[in-house]
């Protein structure tokens, strides 16, 4: 079975994001970028499925600037087989991303699309769901466990109330949650071998889909600074404050 794994290049999760002075977005100039952590979990899962003999080929696709090739190389070093960059120098909205991915899926005909549940930059949590709708495939989001048998997948999902188990027919879109696995560090020899793997580059325009933005960002701002706490002398004081000031009791 062929698996398609979309990955996104985002601001490194260890970097403190700074807002641009004009509040138009996050300042990415000279900021360290990395693969979105949820995408990394999806890549790891695909590699594990390949190691189990269930998957025969892992195709890694990214939509983004030329530098997203580095992100694809990282995924190839982890065990992906070949890569595809759909180059776009503007940041696409989830619907546009889903449409491009649909076009890629139509070309590649994968048996499964395995992707992160959301990217840590926009936190939209939308592409997987939109993609499944566009393809008319079943979806299983927030996966914490995936078992594939024959033409279906049993997926354990992390939902608010606990764990939900779904059976989805393949092909399907599955999005990875944090506890699905712990991604490996690519081995140094595999990083060197990844350089020799196929990485095709196309332009968004090649797919002829409508990527016009539907959303307008009004402003991006830092979260308000937390006011300092206060110390109370006694438990009674605390209860009183919870009642009168916090209004939670």
């Amino acid at each position: 079975m062929k698996v398609l794994v979309p990955v996104k290049r985002v601001i490194d999760s260890n970097v403190k994001a700074r807002v641009k002075p004009d509040q138009s977005g996050v300042d990415l100039a000279n900021v360290k970028m990395a693969m979105n952590p949820f995408c990394e979990i999806a890549v790891e899962e695909a590699v594990r499925l390949k190691e189990k003999g269930i998957v025969s080929e892992i195709v890694v696709v990214s939509i983004g600037p030329a530098q997203a090739q580095e992100t694809i190389r990282t995924a190839l070093a982890m065990g992906g087989d070949r890569g595809l960059l759909v180059q776009s120098d503007v940041d696409l909205e989830p619907l546009a991303v889903a449409k491009v991915l649909k076009a890629v899926a139509d070309e590649e005909q994968p048996g499964l699309i395995l992707m992160g549940k959301q990217a840590i930059d926009g936190d939209n949590n939308a592409v997987g769901q939109m993609l499944s709708a566009l393809l008319g495939w079943p979806q299983a989001t927030f996966a914490s466990k995936i078992e594939i048998s024959g033409s279906s997948a049993k997926v354990t999902r992390e939902v608010d109330g606990g764990l939900q188990t779904l059976d989805v027919a393949l092909p399907a879109v599955i999005t990875a949650d944090l506890r699905l696995n712990e991604p490996r560090y690519a081995s140094l020899p595999n990083i060197m071998k990844a350089k020799k793997k196929d990485l095709a580059v196309k332009a968004v325009g090649d797919y002829g889909v409508d990527i016009a933005p539907r959303l307008t960002v009004l402003k991006v701002a830092e979260p308000p600074k937390r006011a300092g706490g206060i110390k109370v002398e006694t438990a009674d004081d605390m209860v009183a404050k919870l009642k009168t000031e916090a209004g939670v009791l």
């Binding site: 070093a77 560090y185 690519a186 990083i191 060197m192 990844a194 350089k195």
Partner: peptide
């Protein structure tokens, strides 16, 4: 010698391993 991109990926992997692990 490695090309610079591969070299950086290699170093970045070691950097992450050192920091996280």
């Amino acid at each position: 010698a490695l090309d610079l991109e591969t070299r950086e990926q290699l170093l970045e992997t070691v950097r992450r391993f050192v920091t996280e692990r």
